[in-house]
Write a protein that binds this DNA or RNA. Structure first.
Lengths: 223, 223
DNA sequence: AGCGTACCCTTACACCGTAAGCCTGTCAAG
DNA sequence: CTTGACAGGCTTACGGTGTAAGGGTACGCT
């Protein structure tokens, strides 16, 4: 006696019919709570009440799933608006990207290892490039500027996430690090650790961002 | 009849006795030619003429191996000298780090996911922080400046490596991309693709780097 | 001579991604 | 109503992964 696969009529189907979107949502949730290595085809199937192989009817690869959830994260970042002035527009979207990447700590690594940008990423790229061009930068400078800005966003976030402390626990761990590293061998790092112990915020995404934006503004052709 | 495990006396031993260093060297080679996913305990053992489990006598984990080879890469980067002026010193070491990461394309991702810096990394951190402090920056600014500089180094390199083209093949692939992306949907990206097709170098590590250094110089207390 | 021990091997387990093929409920065409 | 195609799920299997547990052996020391 096979258990009824779907109710014969309008009775609520025992499970929703599975779809690319449902798979990606579940994968995103898995990644958020357990990191990328927590999303495996088997576990994903389990969460969805389905066997692992069933996923392959809706998705080519595990790679495709990673592509998908990476783009879901990209879809969360605020696309720069062409209506604001270029600087605040780009600044806001960079900050928004930083926040999105922090919300999904696994996403940086995944995005960086992806070859083909998804639609959300393309939309973002298009908009940023558009705003920069609109600001009067020539094409070559736009390319360089974009690389610099995005490098800071990704690089900063990933270092930040790799750091062994989050904002809340900074002083504790910093003290521990200071002890390990102590004085003699690394005096300069010890000074940094001391600073961190004082509770001063060490992580300032906007510092580097503004350095870059200031520099770009200075390069911008008048008009 | 077990094959002679080691020659009874001075006859050249059939294999060197295995050691952490030998393991790391082999792992580094493996990673360089096949990426991180090419370094597995079994394959590593095979390369060293040894069974996988034997590695665990010299190394705690696979993680420890990754820690090790990551630090080997860090050891390749030029530590900033306190004798040069701060700017050229920091600049040179950033460029050197960029080159080291390019030589070992897998290293960026590995380094970013590592929690505890190895000795080479510590040496590098200590030196950079030292030079920045020597340049007159106060501690808080040193922390921010360092984060910004390192973010650019890592972020840029990783984007660069994720890009589907290297310098040589740029025009070809860019053309292909331009076709895929074509005009209507992403006019700005199309313009970028066109630029890339013209053969103009798109990747300029030093552009963003100098933006940051210029900004820092301006922030630097006089004297 | 005998012992400790450093080193390597064997076996085994739980997990991974996915190729190949089967089974069955649904639905449109005849 | 019958029939056939087919979509969407399941089963099984293969070759890979990291590593826990324990077995054996050859060397250096006393």
């Amino acid at each position: 006696m096979p258990k009824p696969p779907t109710a014969s009529r309008g009775k609520a189907a025992p499970r929703a019919p599975l779809s690319r979107a449902r798979i990606l949502d579940a994968a995103l949730a898995l990644a958020d709570e357990g990191g990328v290595e927590a999303v495996s085809m088997r576990r994903l199937g389990q969460v969805l009440g389905v066997e692992a192989m069933s996923l392959y009817k809706h998705v080519a690869d595990k790679e495709a799933i990673l592509d998908g959830i990476a783009d879901l994260v990209m879809a969360e970042v605020e696309v720069p608006s062409p209506d604001l002035d270029w600087r605040t527009s780009v600044r806001r979207s960079a900050i928004s990207a930083h926040e999105a990447l922090r919300r999904h700590p696994w996403a940086g690594i995944v995005l960086e290892s992806r070859l083909n940008p998804g639609p959300a990423r393309l939309r973002y790229l298009e908009a940023v490039v558009g705003v920069l061009r609109g600001a009067g930068f020539d094409t070559a400078t736009v390319a360089r500027a974009f690389m610099a800005l995005d490098s800071h966003t990704y690089g900063f976030t990933m270092q930040e996430l790799a750091l062994p402390f989050d904002a809340a626990t900074t002083p504790r761990i910093a003290a521990e690090m200071a002890a390990r590293v102590f004085a003699d061998d690394y005096p300069n790092l010890a000074a940094m650790a001391e600073l961190a112990m004082s509770g001063a915020p060490m992580l300032d995404f906007e510092f580097g961002l503004d350095l870059l934006l200031d520099g770009l503004e200075r390069l911008r052709p008048a008009g």
